[in-house]
Design a binder for these strands. Structure first.
Lengths: 257, 257
DNA sequence: TCTACCGGCGTTGTATACAACCGCGCGCCG
DNA sequence: CGGCGCGCGGTTGTATACAACGCCGGTAGA
């Protein structure tokens, strides 16, 4: 079963190395729930599943462990990580703290007019989507993208590579990303009302940035992150929503060990 | 030049793998300044220097890049990262934000009496060291250890593995750790006065935790982190202090490209 | 003389062989 | 019948061979 693609040749997917494929493959397996939380992942096992050799598998496991999806087990090896409700709350709170810091920095340093325009464009586009009475999956997905873009712009506006880097490691966790729950939103009651509240906060945040009011921007952004908390609580009450949430199988409900 | 230790045998240093040695070796080289910031590190080059094969070198480079000491270069390969003054300020601010979050969580959830006792023990031990009129390197080093322990206890008191994890990635950067500047403190003017201010803040923080006053604990801890900012500014004015600072050669002064 | 091609070298990606460790079950001996 | 030891399968750590780029310089042709 020699692999078709030794070396680095054959640009099937441009620049996609075996390591990238292994990372994507394992991450997908974990996030889709085809391997359960707590399950031990061995290098050779992944070799069989992915069809690449141990070397890229090894690199992928290391990267995913650094990302937080996997946890290195006692003597050696990795297990699929699980997340308690409290841990996800904490991750969201951490994101809020860091995005809040970014907002404060941005307000203090002043946001370029071009960036403000971009932010406002985002808001307008989201408004359009929210005007629909009952948005479908398609529209929610587009809203999620716009929301991610809004948060990206916000962080970028801080002008700090450090903040971006740390935030990237936080957001790489499932559930911690700003748009983590949007995909499950269609299965959550009152989802539209929640999104409208979030959008109101978006406007306030942009206004605070424009006014260079760091004292207002920071707590606004922190509080805004807690919308995700509410979404998580609602999603946890709906098995349907959980299955449609990326990595939902990784959530360790209270009482399930 | 076959390596003496193939496989995993021969517990010269217990449990120390070649990969660990490579990580330590490269990190030391970078932090001691024997490779300059911006220099490209090739796998084979490290093989020659470290005397281990490419496999552990590769793993080490990946780990150090995740840690933030190295930066992956455009097509492939790694370069030694450099840090501007502003970036270090940001890193300290980030630590402050996260430690502040930890303090808030700890205050809200309540700190166990045992942990409070540990914190107070730390304070007492630091008081003893600060009572000396002119502490030497030895005493400053012990102070740094105690200070690190204090901050560790604080974070632990939050009871959040997430916060601990993210903070660990921030602190893994040189300069960002709570005790990063203590080693250079002896070469900084007014160092003792600064440490006494820091110690005052330590007391206030513990008092806020004991009173479960999250609203006081968080900003106190944030402000406390900014002591490190002041230390950095002072260290940057002293070439002597810089050379005694781990990773000082990585600091990109304004105007030095 | 300038340009274009070709080949070698340096570098990384990948596969794989081998060594050491760990846990476990089986068999031997008391 | 019970305990101990030994070997074996499973797993990771390490070294290394080979393939595929990319770049640079040299050479040949116009």
């Amino acid at each position: 079963m020699k692999n078709v693609r030794p070396g680095r040749s054959n640009a099937l997917l441009k620049q996609a190395t075996q390591t990238d494929r292994a990372v994507l493959g394992i991450r997908d397996m974990v996030l889709r729930g085809s391997v359960r939380a707590g399950k031990r992942l061995t290098e050779l096992g992944m070799v069989d599943v992915l069809g690449v050799s141990r070397t890229p598998v090894r690199a992928a496991l290391q990267r995913l462990a650094a990302e937080g999806l996997l946890q290195s087990a006692q003597p050696n090896g990795y297990v699929v990580r699980s997340f308690s409700e409290a841990e996800i709350f904490d991750a969201i709170e951490i994101r809020g703290a860091l995005e809040g810091l970014a907002a404060r920095m941005a307000a203090e340093r002043g946001v370029p007019a071009a960036t403000l325009d971009d932010l406002k464009d985002c808001l307008a586009a989201m408004d359009t989507l929210l005007a629909t009475a009952a948005p479908g999956d398609e529209q929610l997905s587009r809203y999620g993208t716009l929301n991610a873009r809004f948060h990206g712009l916000l962080v970028e506006a801080a002008g700090s590579a450090m903040v971006e880097r740390i935030l990237a490691t936080v957001v790489s966790l499932p559930f911690a990303a700003p748009d983590a729950f949007v995909s499950a939103q269609a299965r959550i009651p009152d989802s539209l009302a929640i999104l409208r509240i979030a959008q109101t906060q978006h406007y306030e945040i942009v206004a605070a940035l424009e006014a260079r009011s760091s004292a207002r921007a920071e707590p606004l952004v922190r509080e805004h992150a807690r919308i995700a908390r509410r979404n998580l609580e609602l999603a946890l009450h709906s098995a349907d929503a959980l299955t449609h949430l990326a990595g939902g199988a990784l959530i360790r409900r209270a009482g399930h060990g």
